[in-house]
Design a protein around this nucleic acid. Sequence first.
DNA 1: TGATGAATTGATAATTTCATCATATCAACG
DNA 2: CGTTGATATGATGAAATTATCAATTCATCA
Lengths: 121, 121
Amino acid sequence: MFQDSERPLYEIKANLFKGLSHPYRIRILEILATASLAVSGPGEVAVADILTETELEASHLSQHLSVLRRHRLVRSQRRGSTVYYRLAFPEVADLLRVARSLLGEILEETKDQLDTAGVLR
Amino acid sequence: MFQDSERPLYEIKANLFKGLSHPYRIRILEILATASLAVSGPGEVAVADILTETELEASHLSQHLSVLRRHRLVRSQRRGSTVYYRLAFPEVADLLRVARSLLGEILEETKDQLDTAGVLR
DNA sequence: TGATGAATTGATAATTTCATCATATCAACG
DNA sequence: CGTTGATATGATGAAATTATCAATTCATCA
């Protein structure tokens, strides 16, 4: 059979996190998440707009978008010479949100420890 | 100042996902998450028990636990010659849960597409 | 104190990811 | 059809991560 998806779930999960392990890919996903949040928003963003916002070079951005596509985190659609990207699932935004929440805890605790150590003063 | 935490949040977030990007580290976190869920559970797990459950070699496990500690995802406590690990924050379990949910969507869609293509028949 | 069990750290080769430039492809237009 | 704008793919060296074995450290006990 073609059941590559017979891999253990923890392996697939780790692979998902690999797709998320680069700063620019996080930035891209957050741009898309913001677009999907706007009530009257388009839910999608043109590559040119991502280029502008991230200040990446075109081929660098494409490489990252390709990784995101491969990991099924985004979808693309070409209309004429413009390509649009959107989050593939709302849960991607959920994941970013929970990660933000966790980081908040981590950074808060780190700050407390630095305070305790008197490092910040 | 010592503000290494002046790095952009998306960079810190990507780094968090790096800590999660290995199958065994996911397994470890899930073992700890399960321990923290049990109502009368200890919330913590001895290294020896993780060793047994994952069937890793001791030094391999230690290397992974060290990464998790460095990323502030777990905490350890030595009592006598036994070291116990626990999740550093409940949000770690949340993150695993949301990732699982997202993967459910991804795998569901992949399965649908394979069905459509008649590959599974 | 030496031996033993538990766990961690150090070291290094193999593998994967990242950074970045060159090239190719797709779409529109005169 | 050639040119241009937009976007993707290919290629490769550098950097980071993984896999795995050796050595060390910590705690306990006789």
